[in-house]
Deep mutational scan, measured.
Amino acid sequence: AGLEKQLAIELKVKQGAENMIQTYSNGSTKDRKLLLTAQQMLQDSKTKIDIIRMQLRRALQ
């Protein structure tokens, strides 16, 4: 149950990062740093999601 909860949280983080990227990508240059931060968050989240999914698969075997 813990892994499913972690996965749900990470999927929400990923969605939030995608929303932030959309918001900041057509903003001013001061938003550039926020855009880069959001892109890093998205990448980190995708990595965590992959790891959690692997752990889930392993647990189900």
Rank of each mutant, 00 (worst) to 15 (best):
L60P: 08
G27D: 09
A8L: 08
S28G: 10
S25H: 11
N26D: 12
T47A: 14
S25D: 11
K14R: 06
I52L: 11
E18C: 02
L34Y: 01
D50S: 14
K46H: 01
L34T: 02
Q40K: 12
R32C: 09
L60Y: 15
L36W: 08
G2V: 09
L3C: 06
A8G: 06
E18T: 04
K30D: 02
R32M: 03
N26L: 04
R53I: 06
M20P: 07
N26T: 11
A59C: 13
A8W: 03
K48C: 02
K12M: 05
R32T: 12
K33F: 02
I9E: 15
K5M: 05
A8K: 13
M41P: 00
G16W: 05
S25F: 02
Q43M: 11
R32N: 11
R32G: 05
L56D: 03
Q22K: 07
K5T: 11
Q6P: 00
A17P: 05
G2I: 04
G16F: 10
L34S: 04
Q6D: 06
L36S: 14
E10Y: 05
R57V: 05
D31Q: 14
I49L: 10
I52F: 08
L42C: 02
V13L: 07
R53D: 00
G16K: 15
K48S: 00
K33W: 03
Q61S: 14
K46M: 09
S25N: 12
Q39K: 12
D44L: 09
I49G: 00
G16S: 14
I9L: 12
K30V: 00
Q61F: 07
M54D: 07
S25W: 02
D50A: 14
L34D: 01
V13N: 14
A38Q: 00
Q55M: 06
K5C: 05
D50V: 02
S45L: 15
K30M: 00
Q55G: 12
T29W: 10
R53P: 00
M54V: 08
L7I: 10
Q22V: 06
R57M: 07
K14E: 09
T37I: 12
N19A: 12
K30G: 08
E10A: 07
G16V: 13
L35P: 00
D31A: 15
K5E: 13
L34F: 12
G16D: 11
L36F: 11
K46V: 06
M54N: 11
I49N: 01
A8C: 06
Q43E: 05
D31E: 09
N19Q: 12
Q6N: 09
Q39N: 03
Y24K: 13
Y24N: 15
R32F: 03
M54H: 09
I9N: 09
E18S: 06
L7A: 07
A8T: 04
G27C: 06
K46N: 09
A8S: 12
A1K: 14
L11M: 13
K30P: 02
A17C: 07
T29S: 10
D50W: 02
E18D: 08
K48G: 00
Y24L: 13
K46W: 04
D44Y: 13
K30R: 08
Y24A: 14
Q39A: 03
A59N: 10
L11F: 03
S25P: 06
Q39I: 05
M20C: 01
K30H: 03
Q6R: 11
E4I: 10
K46T: 05
A1G: 15
R53E: 02
K46R: 07
I51V: 13
Q43N: 06
R57S: 07
M54A: 14
V13E: 13
T29Y: 05
K48F: 05
D44Q: 13
T47F: 00
S28F: 03
E10S: 06
Q22M: 07
M20Y: 03
T47R: 15
Q6G: 07
G2M: 12
S25A: 11
E4F: 08
I52V: 05
N26A: 11
K33A: 05
Y24S: 14
M20S: 06
L34N: 03
L56I: 07
L60D: 02
K12P: 03
T47E: 13
Q55C: 02
L7R: 06
N19D: 07
K12N: 02
R57W: 12
Q55K: 15
M41I: 14
M20K: 10
K5W: 02
A59E: 09
M20E: 07
L36V: 09
K48Y: 01
L11N: 08
L11W: 03
V13K: 15
Q39Y: 05
L42I: 04
N19R: 13
K30S: 03
N26W: 01
Q22G: 13
A8F: 03
I9R: 14
D50K: 15
S45E: 00
R57K: 13
L11R: 13
D31T: 15
K30N: 13
R57F: 03
G2A: 04
L7Q: 11
R57E: 02
I49E: 00
D31H: 14
Q39T: 02
I9G: 14
D31P: 15
L3M: 09
Q39D: 08
E4W: 14
T29E: 04
K33P: 02
S28K: 13
I9T: 14
G27R: 11
I21K: 10
A59D: 10
E4G: 09
R32S: 08
D50C: 08
L3W: 08
Q55F: 10
Q43Y: 03
G2H: 14
L56K: 04
S45P: 00
G2N: 15
L3S: 12
Q61M: 12
L7E: 13
M41K: 08
G27L: 02
D31I: 15
L3Y: 06
I9Y: 06
L7S: 07
Q61A: 14
G16P: 09
D44F: 14
K14T: 11
A1R: 14
K46C: 02
L42E: 02
L3F: 08
Q43T: 08
L60S: 12
G2W: 09
Y24D: 13
L60F: 02
Q43R: 14
V13M: 12
N26M: 05
K12W: 01
I49F: 06
E10M: 05
Q6Y: 10
L36G: 10
T37K: 15
A38Y: 01
L34C: 04
G16Q: 15
L35T: 01
Q22W: 04
L42G: 00
L36Q: 12
V13Y: 01
K5L: 03
K48D: 00
Q39F: 03
